[in-house]
Design a binder for these strands. Structure first.
Lengths: 203, 203
DNA sequence: CAACCCCTACCGATCAATAGGTCGCCCGGT
DNA sequence: ACCGGGCGACCTATTGATCGGTAGGGGTTG
């Protein structure tokens, strides 16, 4: 809150934020390994060199930590969206998938959480519902932007959007289970081919 | 083991199997609601009118119960596969999806488990890996059977198979999160349209 | 038919581990 | 001296699991 960060003294506030970031990072790892329900505060704390109680000092409850984790993803999303002006070209999506294939950990967190959150009273339920809405809406724009209103099979962008998202999620699951049997980026590009109208032979 | 079930006396062995079936059913429900890690033996037991220890009499360990749950799915799969001679027409898949849309519970179990199982040392890890392999293989056959070797976008059945699976899984996740925003069966059919070569205008 | 026994089904008591969370204290920098 | 950061002790719930029992239906024997 105190905005006078004038001096080089990186305010104690900054220190605090740094620590929080570390913790979130650790939480990402642990959740990736054990899921939300299986991720104990103690395990997260240990990874940052804290005790469970020390962790609770930064995030008063486990749910608060989860929320922080989800918010950080939103920040990434927003950042990327800003880069692309809210309508991502397919090519950018493809390279995003490629990038994801590099970081199984991150993919795993959100795959696990997305499954987890379908559960009763899960704290991330609402989050995912909203997120999917947003992502779908975004996909519609991107699709229309790239292919116009008419896609192969007579599909509209509105119809294709859920499919695009489903492909990304579904491929991740298969890929996480068996990276050697599923080439996630290649498969994604295959799907893009399906979406590409074939009346332009593409050189 | 005693094969002389001649009389109408439904052997105590049958009784045993029945009880097990009940328990598995209950386990399906509880897992759907809370995931595997969140599903306590006590909760499952209570649903069948047993104590936790009573349950453990039938399945000596939690993992054993999980395995039984997974096996029952295999039985369903096998049964359906038998019906279709191992190569499912697309139309049958579509109606399977339609059927699934009727039973959110079942879908939820396996969506949750599929996510859950990506986790370290998860007892169902191997199961899902194998299952995906099998399903993919199966999909290849079905696709080739239906469309031949050449699909839209120049894809081979081998390339399209992971996409088909991904669509099913991915749509389920979105649908579970927001059934009103995602029409799973319709979306699946949309995807099938993408796969259908357009040189046959279909009446 | 009765006495007997045995095995299946099931429960009560109990455990060790682990969970998330609270409270009060201390330490060190400013 | 103050305060943010952090820990130790402690608590209560819950978990999966073990052990020792017991109720009773069924078959066997006399």
């Amino acid at each position: 809150m105190t905005a006078h960060d004038s001096g080089r003294r990186l305010g104690r506030a900054t220190r605090n934020e740094d620590r929080k970031a570390e913790i979130i990072q650790a939480a990402l790892e642990v959740i990736a390994e054990r899921g939300y329900r299986g991720a104990s505060l103690a395990a997260v704390a240990e990874r940052v060199g804290l005790t469970q109680q020390g962790l609770l000092h930064y995030f008063p409850t486990k749910e608060a930590l989860l929320i922080a984790v989800l918010e950080i993803r939103d920040q990434w999303d927003m950042a990327s969206a800003a880069l692309a002006g809210s309508a991502w070209p397919m090519e950018m999506m493809a390279s995003l998938v490629e990038y994801n294939a590099t970081r199984p950990g991150i993919v795993q967190v959100f795959t696990v959480l997305a499954g987890d959150s379908v559960t009763e009273d899960h704290p991330a339920r609402e989050y995912f519902k909203d997120r999917y809405r947003w992502v779908r809406h975004n996909a519609v724009e991107s699709l229309r932007n790239e292919y116009g209103d008419e896609l192969p099979g007579g599909l509209t962008p509105e119809q294709a959007a859920p499919l695009l998202i489903a492909i990304m999620d579904g491929l991740q699951v298969q890929w996480l289970h068996d990276p050697e049997a599923v080439d996630m980026p290649a498969s994604f590009r295959d799907f893009v081919k399906l979406l590409t109208p074939d009346d332009l032979p593409k050189t």
